[in-house]
Nucleic acid binder design. Structure first.
Length: 389
DNA sequence: CAAGCGTGGCA
DNA sequence: TTGCCAAGCTT
């Protein structure tokens, strides 16, 4: 790149984007920014769509150009993708559409089945809301999703991001789709140094200035793909970026340091004792957690509370599902990290002569996989099966 | 509206 | 090993 071009780019960055950052609303058409007379226009949407048409990723919920999107598939994938990586979602998405091909099929399923199918994907309120939403759409709307953001936004589990994404991707409506990728891309494009989450409204305004009227769905997916594959959190591949000529952070050497974020609180460690109670027929005691809160509606092995201080067996015993002759503390710990705390569980193993009447359900060991057991409880089962037999 | 809410991969 | 991060929503 010659010195002259660098100079003109620098001028464009200062005059063009500098103006755009400070006075977005006053720019007649911020989507086409000019960096000096005689220079071609920098048209972000066109450049990005050209890149997308060339390098588009193939994903199970994505359709070939010109093919109509299935709103059910778009909705299901978007809910699964909330705070969840593409790699983690793919097998769950395929299992769900194979088992429940249409939204009416999902609506007709039992909530427990949906929870069990969701087990391992995390954020289990999503599964509850997913099923509630499917029932609303199937029973009150003839299986058709609302097409506009406002209508979508009223459904359980659909917030600002997901409503915009479905409106754009499934129905082709212009919508300003802002997820974590878009926030990062905008923070860099416009060199926004204010930390998240306070900067969110500003980043959405900036995203709106770049969002075109046409090809709404392709554009939305293109920005997110850009963030996922090129404008990555660490080591962004600026050399491959179609928006490099307009990226203020890249020009300033700030790309990798943006977006700024407020520090997160330290994660405390909590501790508990979990009871692995087996009967002579080879079944183990499970119970269902309360419908809301941590792991809400999922199955678990009975346990004490999870608190800061460690437990002695005597302290833990009153929390046990029953009082057998003896609980045996298994060696080792089951550790798991949630969003906001670490957990260390000690497993206490016990046997009962028969299946006594206790709260919960007895599950054969070879059928544990079918249960709505979150990953933490699968770790407990693996630990108990390895140490107790 | 800040906090609560999972999990796995990666540096 | 530890911390960060991922196509956020709800209360």
């Amino acid at each position: 790149m010659g010195t002259a071009l660098v100079g003109r780019l620098g001028r464009w960055l200062d005059l063009g984007l500098g103006l755009a950052v400070g006075h977005v609303a006053s720019i007649p058409d911020a989507r086409v920014l000019h960096y000096g007379s005689g220079m071609p226009a920098f048209d972000p949407a066109s450049l990005l769509l050209a890149w997308y048409d060339r390098d588009r990723r193939v994903l199970p919920w994505r359709y070939a150009p010109g093919e109509a999107a299935d709103p059910y598939h778009v909705w299901l994938s978007e809910v699964m993708l909330q705070q969840t990586t593409v790699a983690a979602v793919i097998p769950y998405f395929q299992a769900f559409i194979r088992r429940w091909p249409r939204v009416g099929d999902l609506a007709a399923a039992a909530t427990e089945e949906v929870m069990a199918a969701w087990a391992g994907l995390g954020y289990y309120a999503r599964a509850r809301n997913l099923h509630a939403c499917a029932k609303l759409v199937a029973e009150w709307r003839g299986g058709r999703f609302p097409e506009d953001e406002a209508g979508l936004r009223q459904l359980p589990g659909i917030g600002d991001y997901t409503a915009a994404a479905i409106a754009a991707i499934a129905f082709g409506h212009r919508a300003v789709v802002v997820d974590g990728n878009v926030e990062r891309v905008m923070a860099r494009m416009f060199a926004v140094t204010d930390p998240l989450p306070a900067a969110k409204p500003r980043l959405k305004e900036l995203a709106a200035t770049l969002t075109p009227d046409d090809r709404a769905g392709d554009y939305a997916q293109a920005v997110m793909d850009l963030g996922a594959t090129i404008c990555t959190p660490r080591s962004p591949a600026c050399g491959l970026c179609p928006w490099r000529p307009g990226c203020r952070a890249q020009a300033l050497g700030l790309a990798e340091s943006l977006p700024a974020k407020v520090e997160k609180a330290e994660r405390p460690t909590r501790r508990g004792v979990v009871f692995w109670l087996t009967a002579p027929d080879g079944s183990v005691l499970l119970r269902r957690r309360p419908p809301k809160g941590l792991l809400g509606g999922m199955m678990e092995f009975p346990s004490t509370d999870w608190r800061d201080a460690a437990w002695s067996l005597d302290e833990a015993a009153p929390s046990a599902p029953l009082a057998p002759k003896s609980w045996r503390l298994l060696p080792g710990l089951v550790t798991h990290t949630f969003t906001h705390f670490h957990l260390e569980l000690t497993v206490a193993a016990g046997r009962t002569p028969a299946q006594p009447a206790v709260r919960g359900v007895w599950c054969p060991l070879d059928r544990l996989e079918e249960q709505a057991l979150p990953t933490l409880m699968r770790k407990v089962a693996r630990h108990a099966l390895a140490k107790a037999y």
